[in-house]
């Protein structure tokens, strides 16, 4: 493929970067990234990936836009309330960048559909708001050998880590299994500062861009946490996989996907 004059101008700030350049921008335009959850994390992540020129963006979300989402889910506008989030997100991306093809999945991911949905993508973004979905995404990505970036946000805190097959621990290596239902407050109960999704979701977009372009060091083997009240980032080195993980270990006990019971929460 060769760039049009519009593309040269649109992506000029990328192309002049040594670490991206012509080849990197082409890789981005040929890349396919799936974002699961078009909420607090998925909204800014999808917007940066769209602006970046990731050629194919998939968005999976079963919910409709609610007025209470708009304080942080910046891909949706007031007029979108009531619309499926995937539709609203697609319309915003189409307005931002005509180079991007958007695939929408207006459904909850489950053990039934997730393998089929992630199959065609190069990188997956976990922008979900609940533990069952996070473990499902992890296990599916481990089984399908897909790289993904996990993140979670609550109140004034956020965290993220990146899994790349064979390159470091998976989410289950670190967190083992979902906490008991109702042991941990959801965002709906606990609240979350809107800009937190912007910070952590943008960091997820950065991980996807670095993975696609093969630039720099990913958060594989590290958990990055952010405390906005103290304005502190911590990059925590994680233990190397010891081969005993229930899903990515040498003799995994989890060989089929699990639909854990879902705690009530309407949309991070």
């Amino acid at each position: 493929m060769s760039f049009s004059n519009e593309q040269l101008e649109r992506y000029s700030r990328h192309i002049i970067l040594k670490e991206v350049g012509v080849k990197g921008q082409k890789k981005l335009l040929n890349a396919k990234v799936l974002i699961i959850g078009a909420g607090g994390l998925g909204a800014p992540c999808a917007m940066y990936l769209a602006a970046t020129g990731v050629g194919t963006i998939g968005i999976a979300d079963a919910d409709e836009v609610d007025l209470s989402n708009l304080q942080r889910q910046i891909i949706h506008a007031t007029e979108d309330v009531g619309k499926p989030k995937v539709q609203s997100a697609k319309e915003t991306i189409n307005k931002m960048n005509p180079d991007v093809t958007v695939n929408t999945y207006h459904e909850f991911v489950s053990s039934e559909n997730i393998m089929k949905i992630i199959k065609d993508y190069d990188f997956i973004i976990d922008g979900t708001d609940n533990f069952p979905a996070k473990f499902l995404i992890n296990d599916a990505c481990v089984m399908a050998k897909k790289p993904f970036c996990h993140a979670g946000i609550i109140r004034f805190q956020g965290q993220l880590m990146t899994y790349v097959p064979e390159k470091g621990p998976c989410y289950r290596c670190v967190f083992k299994e979902p906490p008991p239902k109702d042991a941990v407050p959801t965002c709906k109960q606990a609240g979350v500062i809107g800009a937190m999704g912007g910070i952590i979701g943008s960091l997820q977009a950065m991980e996807a861009i670095k993975y696609i372009t093969g630039t720099g060091e990913l958060l594989t083997g590290y958990l990055l946490t952010f405390n906005a009240l103290k304005m502190e980032f911590r990059k925590i080195k994680l233990p190397k996989p010891n081969g005993k993980c229930a899903v990515c270990g040498e003799n995994p006990s989890i060989t089929e996907l699990i639909d854990y019971e879902q705690a009530e929460c309407n949309g991070v």
Binding site: S2, F3, L8, E9, S12, R13, I15, I16, G21, V22, K23
Partner: peptide
């Protein structure tokens, strides 16, 4: 910066 962008594209 299109000067340098076009140069990079040609070099590529």
């Amino acid at each position: 910066p299109i000067t340098f962008v076009k140069t990079k594209v040609a070099l590529d």
